[in-house]
Computed example of a mutant assay.
Amino acid sequence: MKWLAGIVPACLASALCAQDISLPEGARLIHDATDRAIRARLPADRAAAGEVPTRIVEGDARHRVWRLEPAHSVASLIASLAPQLREAGYTAFLTCETWDCGGYNFRLAMPDVDPPTMIVDLGRFGYIGAEDPGTGTVLGLILSTTRDASYVQLTTVTPAGIAVPVAAGPAETPPDALLAPTPDPSGFSAAFLREGGIVLEDLRFEVGSATLSAGPFASLSALAGFLRDNPDRRVVLVGHSDAQGSTAGNMALSKRRAEAVRARLLSEYDLPGDRVQADGVGYLAPRASNDTETGREANRRVEAVLVQP
Rank of each mutant, 00 (worst) to 15 (best):
M110A: 15
D45G: 13
L139F: 07
A33I: 11
I162Y: 00
I119S: 12
G26I: 14
P175R: 05
S254H: 08
I142W: 03
V305L: 07
A61I: 14
I198V: 12
A82L: 14
P83M: 09
D148L: 10
A285D: 01
F192N: 04
R55D: 04
A167P: 07
A177V: 06
L179P: 00
L253G: 02
L29M: 13
L223Q: 05
S219A: 05
A191M: 14
S241C: 11
L81N: 05
V152E: 05
A180T: 08
V307G: 06
D45Q: 11
R275H: 11
E87Q: 13
E268M: 04
E195H: 11
F93N: 11
P159V: 08
P286M: 00
L154A: 08
H240F: 10
F226N: 03
L143V: 05
N250G: 10
F106V: 00
A109L: 03
A47F: 01
A37L: 11
F217P: 09
P174S: 03
C17E: 12
H72C: 13
T91N: 13
R64M: 14
A160R: 08
Q84T: 02
L68S: 13
P170V: 03
S254K: 14
S241T: 13
V261L: 07
A304W: 08
A298I: 12
T54H: 09
E293N: 07
M118A: 06
L77C: 07
A49Q: 12
L193Q: 14
P170R: 08
D35H: 15
L271E: 07
R124A: 15
A285T: 00
L4E: 13
F205P: 10
S289V: 01
A163C: 00
I38C: 10
A218W: 00
L16M: 14
C101E: 07
S73R: 13
L212N: 04
G215Q: 11
G136M: 07
D132H: 09
V57S: 10
A82N: 08
A33V: 15
A47Q: 08
G103H: 06
V8I: 06
P216M: 08
A61T: 15
V305W: 01
P9D: 09
G26K: 15
P43L: 06
G102S: 04
A168Q: 12
H31L: 08
E195I: 00
G273T: 11
A243P: 01
P272S: 06
E172I: 06
S144H: 12
G295A: 01
V305F: 01
S14N: 10
I162V: 01
D232L: 12
T156L: 15
A5N: 10
G134Q: 10
A40C: 15
Q277I: 03
V261C: 07
W66C: 12
L284G: 02
R301P: 09
P24T: 04
R228P: 00
P53G: 03
Q277G: 15
H63R: 15
L237S: 15
D35P: 04
S80P: 03
P272W: 04
F188K: 02
V236I: 15
S221G: 02
L179S: 04
V138N: 08
S213D: 12
N230L: 04
T117I: 14
G26D: 13
S150T: 08
I128W: 04
S219N: 03
V207T: 11
V65P: 08
A49L: 15
Q84E: 10
V120C: 09
I128Y: 00
D184Y: 01
